[in-house]
Computed example of a mutant assay.
Amino acid sequence: MRIDELLKGAYERLTFVSDTAQLDAQLLLAHVLGVTTAYFYTWPDKILEHSSIAEFEALLQRREQGEPIAYIIRHQAFWTLELEVAECTLIPRADTERLVEVALALIDPMAANCVLDLGTGTGAIALALAAESPLSSVTGIDFNEEAVALARRNAKRNQLDVDFIQSSWFDQLDASNQFNLIVSNPPYIDPDDEHLAQGDVRFEPRSALVSEQQGLADILHIIACAPSYLSEAGYLVFEHGYDQGAAVRSAFLAQGYTDVKTHQDLGANDRVTQGRKPVIG
């Protein structure tokens, strides 16, 4: 079978399960053949071997069941990085790049900042910040041992120096650790949210998605604890749900943070909120 014929049939099958059926099919076949998707426009009439077709069919069936592309091909692009992904962590998403943009605007990228990423997962945020602020000391924390190992592999893969450690939020940090910037994409979905039974999130770890108190429990905990670990005028920045901006701003203000503001994503949804360390005295 020719490449273009195989892809056409795959597009049609995936239309029922994906809004990006064409791209999904191309990514799966590119993974099987070890090429980029540009190859398909150069060699659409290339005849494929039966073994390649069989391997592609197996992956295609997994995608038809709703399994995310990133888990099937085991990698995902984020910022300027290529990251390994696994079922122990969330899949890095384009919305989270907004968090990176906001964070970078709050620090001098040519200064020796101390940066902490809470709930680092694949290490995406920490590694993106390290790539853009090479003089900074960046630490990533995750409670999941498998995620910490994955993040370390991603650091090596992208040749970036980031310290990844296992901890439940701040538990393994001493208060002598002071950070100019703390960032986090914590669990923020309400346990009763109907979207948990839909799409890619069905396959992602629930512990990385769900938080009590209508999705705000982890955010509230971090807001309360972070001042002890922020340097003077340091910032705490969160990614959160599209409908949580007001609640997160209120939580920041209730704890005395200043310069509190919410930033929107490309879809004009509230996505990232910042706060500066409370002034004591």
Rank of each mutant, 00 (worst) to 15 (best):
E204V: 08
D192C: 03
K156G: 09
L6R: 05
L90V: 10
E145Y: 11
T120K: 02
A70M: 10
Q26A: 13
N185A: 12
N144Y: 08
E64I: 09
G140I: 08
V148F: 09
G267D: 09
H50D: 15
L60M: 11
Y39I: 09
P186I: 09
R157F: 14
D193S: 08
E57C: 03
A86Q: 13
S228R: 12
P205W: 05
T120V: 09
G234F: 00
L90Q: 08
A247W: 10
L59P: 01
V248A: 02
D259C: 02
P92H: 07
R202N: 03
E194N: 09
A30G: 02
L60W: 09
L99S: 01
Q65D: 10
A128C: 10
D190F: 10
A54S: 15
S18L: 11
A247H: 11
W79A: 02
T139C: 12
F179D: 00
V237A: 04
E49H: 14
N113F: 00
D243T: 10
G119V: 05
A197H: 13
K46T: 15
L216W: 01
S18N: 12
S51R: 14
F252L: 04
D192N: 11
S136W: 00
V237R: 02
E57W: 05
A175M: 13
A112K: 11
T42R: 08
F179K: 00
S133R: 00
A130S: 14
I219G: 02
N177Y: 13
D95T: 00
D45N: 15
T139D: 04
Q65R: 14
F78K: 03
A131P: 00
A197P: 01
